[in-house]
């Protein structure tokens, strides 16, 4: 009887863990997936994480916050089709397939800022921060980059630098993102 009770408690705890109740997070529940999820390395930063902007004092770690809402820039029709397919695959947790579709899109439209940004976002989500950083930089260098896309690229750069332990670089990037 006692053993059964322990098992039930363990089950409830596990369930809460999945729904985020234990950590108190407000993120929606994430279903367990077939594809392995890369673990994010914990950056070793000097001292506590602080708000990066002068005069601002947000309670939340801005580098861990979800990327702000963003309206994507223009993309050619065939590339958009591949980006849409990549999104579908990404939602289905088929990450390698999603990246392969982004590669195809990049091959047909390598000057598209949107495709570079998407690469950066996906690599960031996968915990591959150096790749995410390079793709964000690549997006910034395009001649047709819009102000919104530039800001998005800086946002991504700020987060990747933070994850890579470059707090100073992250702060600079975040500042650029808000100009």
């Amino acid at each position: 009887m006692k053993k059964r009770l322990v098992t039930q408690i363990a089950f409830v705890v596990t369930l809460h863990g999945y729904t985020g109740c234990i950590t108190g997070g407000s993120e929606p529940a994430v279903a367990p997936t077939a594809a392995p999820t890369p673990t994010l390395p914990t950056p070793s930063l000097p001292g506590p994480v602080v708000a990066p902007l002068e005069g601002a004092a947000p309670a939340l770690n801005v580098y861990e916050a979800p990327l702000p809402e963003y309206t994507p820039g223009p993309v050619s029709r065939p590339a958009q089709r591949l980006l849409d397919k990549a999104s579908e695959e990404w939602k289905r947790q088929r990450r390698e397939q999603a990246l392969a579709l982004l590669d195809r899109a990049f091959r047909i439209d390598s000057q598209s800022t949107e495709i570079s940004l998407r690469h950066s976002e996906y690599y960031f989500e996968m915990g591959q921060y150096s790749k995410a950083e390079n793709w964000a930089k690549r997006a910034m260098g395009n001649s047709d980059v819009t102000a919104a896309q530039m800001s998005r690229a800086w946002q991504l750069l700020a987060r990747t630098r933070y994850k890579l332990g470059d707090l100073e670089g992250a702060q600079k990037a975040l500042k650029e993102a808000q100009i």
Partner: peptide, 30 residues
């Protein structure tokens, strides 16, 4: 434009049944 990309001749490999084995990514660095 200043980005180095490792030249690649192979993009992906499937096994004889068509099951994906490996994809070779763009290795890019500024």
């Amino acid at each position: 434009g200043g980005f180095s990309i490792q030249p690649r001749s192979v993009l992906a490999v499937l096994d004889s049944n068509g099951t994906p084995l490996k994809r070779f990514e763009q290795d890019m660095k500024q």
